[in-house]
């Protein structure tokens, strides 16, 4: 009997339910875990996703995309399977996909994290027989500090920039990380933040979903020659080194990502600061999830799958790598 979910050229496929999960080519029916570009691609005939993520997906895939929303935990029959979506804690509306078929339960985590995040529903541990999990940061050197201490470190850097009268430009992924930063900072400070144009509509989607964040001002609305000294500016990594940066003369720059945990990555980026903040599971979370979900088989996708798989096997959990086309080692939004 073929496995319930298999890897096809167009992506993860469930034959019993005749649907794909986060396919990278157009298919008749796609179940989406979340709205990042390497997971939500356009062109499929029908999409099913968590109701809380529909706003983002409409923004990403087009307002008239054939999207269908499902509440977290709501069960729906697809072919011979019963499918439900459960919070993944990655970004707004992110979901794990639970598939039940012939007495067997599979869970595809998509991208997930177990740290608290004010912008999305917290990760839910879903018991299963087979777990298909991400493994982006699957080495024990990747262990996240409490988000609040990271937010305070960012605030301290911002204050220092204010003292030195220079702009503070913080690079981070435009979807998820930027909104999480704005929400986390709102807990410790009350000042407006300037946004790169690519982030403006995405922040609006989060505001429409009722997420409390710091007030934001599009940089493009600022008068020519405005002085940004002492102010915080959020920008996507793609803005680095572009003419857009010229208006922030003498800026102190920083980058917020899980990769910043390693000094070589920090120094190579050439920023003044690297803040360790990720929307992915760290090593302790990856190991805990594999153990706690009770799966007898764990399949690991994108990341340092080799070490993770070998470690789980030593722990008595049958594990194997699964080669997907999701963002790998260089994934920008990690």
């Amino acid at each position: 009997m073929p496995p319930l979910i298999e890897l096809r050229p167009e992506g993860l496929y469930c034959a019993a339910g005749d649907f794909h999960i986060d396919p990278w080519r157009p298919v008749p029916r796609a179940v989406l875990t979340h709205g990042h570009a390497d997971h939500a691609r356009s062109g499929s005939a029908r999409y099913l996703a968590a109701a809380q993520g529909l706003g983002l997906l409409r923004h990403r895939l087009g307002a008239d995309s054939p999207l269908e929303g499902l509440a977290y935990g709501e069960r729906v029959a697809l072919g011979d399977t019963v499918v439900s979506l459960h919070p993944a804690g990655h970004i707004l509306g992110s979901a794990q996909v639970r598939i039940e078929h012939a007495g067997e339960t599979w869970v595809v985590t998509g991208d997930y994290k177990r740290d608290p995040d004010p912008t999305c529903a917290p990760f839910e541990l879903v018991p299963c027989d087979v777990l298909i999990t991400e493994a982006t940061f699957a080495l024990p050197v990747y262990r996240w500090e409490p988000t609040e201490s990271v937010a305070r470190a960012i605030l301290a850097w911002w204050d220092e920039c204010a003292r030195r009268r220079v702009p503070a430009v913080l690079f981070c992924y435009a979807l998820g990380k930027a909104q999480r930063l704005l929400a986390e900072l709102a807990r410790v400070v009350e000042r407006p933040v300037h946004l790169h144009g690519a982030m403006v509509p995405l922040v609006q989607v989060y505001r429409d979903a009722g997420i409390a964040m710091l007030p934001t001002l599009p940089v493009s609305d600022s008068a020519r020659g405005r002085d940004f000294a002492g102010e915080l500016v959020l920008a996507p990594p793609s803005a680095e080194g572009t003419p857009w940066m010229r208006r922030f003369r003498d800026a102190s720059t920083a980058f917020a990502s899980g990769w910043m945990r390693v000094r070589g990555n920090r120094r190579r980026r050439g920023h003044d600061r690297g803040f360790v903040l990720s929307d992915h599971a760290d090593w302790p979370a990856l190991v805990a999830t594999a153990r706690e979900c009770g799966a007898r088989r764990v399949l690991a996708t994108h990341g340092s799958t080799d070490a993770y798989v070998a470690f789980l096997r030593e722990q008595g959990i049958y594990a194997a790598p699964l080669r997907t086309e999701f963002g790998g080692e260089d994934s920008a939004h990690a």
């Binding site: 050197v141 080799d306 070490a307 470690f311």
Partner: peptide, 17 residues
């Protein structure tokens, strides 16, 4: 750390220091 020696080595290979 409580990790097996090979995992410490893998980590070292990744970090480089």
């Amino acid at each position: 750390s409580g990790y097996p020696a090979w995992l410490v080595e893998d980590s070292y290979a990744h970090v480089g220091d």
